[in-house]
Design a protein around this nucleic acid. Sequence first.
DNA 1: GCCGGATACTCGTAAAACAAATGTCGCACG
DNA 2: CGTGCGACATTTGTTTTACGAGTATCCGGC
Lengths: 233, 233
Amino acid sequence: MLNSQKKPQTRVEFALDYITKEIAQGNLRAGDKLPNEKDLAEQLGISRTPIREAMKTLAVAGLIDIRHGHGSYVREEKGAPALPLNLFQLYLQDSTPEMLMELRDIFDRNCSELAAQRRTDEDLARMRECIDRLKALTEQPDASLDDMLKADLDFHRAIYEATGNKLIMTVAEFVLNMVAPWVRKSLDVSGRVRAVDLHEQIYDAILKQEIGPQNRMSVDANMQHFMQSLDQE
Amino acid sequence: MLNSQKKPQTRVEFALDYITKEIAQGNLRAGDKLPNEKDLAEQLGISRTPIREAMKTLAVAGLIDIRHGHGSYVREEKGAPALPLNLFQLYLQDSTPEMLMELRDIFDRNCSELAAQRRTDEDLARMRECIDRLKALTEQPDASLDDMLKADLDFHRAIYEATGNKLIMTVAEFVLNMVAPWVRKSLDVSGRVRAVDLHEQIYDAILKQEIGPQNRMSVDANMQHFMQSLDQE
DNA sequence: GCCGGATACTCGTAAAACAAATGTCGCACG
DNA sequence: CGTGCGACATTTGTTTTACGAGTATCCGGC
């Protein structure tokens, strides 16, 4: 857990350490372009190989973006880990949709309470917009499922953002990425109407700052419908 | 979010895909040794470099362990991401201890409720053991802080495990790793006694299956003490 | 029987060269 | 003069070969 004694550092760790500190100390800011791999290698007195592995590590961790033929850049928002999709599959392989939704509920419930206490007008406006967007999509028959999914997820993101806790957003984004495929499935014709309803209720509660244990029933009800929709397949 | 169209796959992605599927399909199980990099490279018809980068990615994602001079192995429990410490610092650089504890609380509160409903006798025994261990360490003056930290974290892990939701454990472990340094700090002489008390209360509630919103006060009280202990420095 | 070094296996690093993607700049053509 | 296209420079992606550095095993001498 705490290892502040190790001296025999590997080259990759050395490079990782260097770049990490450059970012932490503000020498490299969000959006900045990192030196190219060749220069960095010479600068640190090591070869490109460990540099590249360090970069790859940072990219997977969601801290930088590597663009072929262009360069590497510090990410604007460190919120969204850049794990490849197939890696998520592995995390999910032993898990059921129930587990997933349970996990998301843990966030939604408590975050709604926090959001109710702290939400700004901008937060409310953002939520309102997401609901309206999803509602509009719901009413047009040829709407794209992906667009609806985005509207749905954006609403939840707005809640997390309203907590004012960036750390929560980081972890919540991770969870959102995992549940996304199932949320998408649940957005069938009856599910999408339900989703709008649920969002409206949550929004209303956050608006009136009435969120509390007693308001949880609607979320539970939605959970039940979600499970039923899965059984129908 | 959903990109099932891309064909021009990079070698690293190709290797990632291959290994991922090997694990997902059960050809490689937890604890198994992966082929060495040279063989894998020949087998896939690519060079060692992209193989190594794919491995590195899997290691950072917490799915395999790479041991110098030994080989690579599929992780027993995919729960603990293997992000280097200095990477965590970056995630934490904009966050305050308040944010961290708030995040952990989100898990502890809801997981305690779930645990109360589902805990088995083994779960209870595990929690009991962790409390006793921490208590014993508390009473001997020269106890190692690291040992106490582990006892503290293990108790929380036991709660997460009692939810029966492996996914929760995965994400919770991630959070635990982030809060660990602060928990460690909070384990000063007065804090460690408080920690035992809090754990006892939670255990008691889970034992009697009484966890609910009304039991949250003690957790909040602990939160307050935690913040105070930070101010004293 | 025990100890220690040779040995084989594996991951870690180095170096040089080429492939592929991307952006830029200038030239030719309309 | 404006536009489009193609050569070029830059940067990451990949290959190849070779060696360095941990780790475990086995075998022979004591």
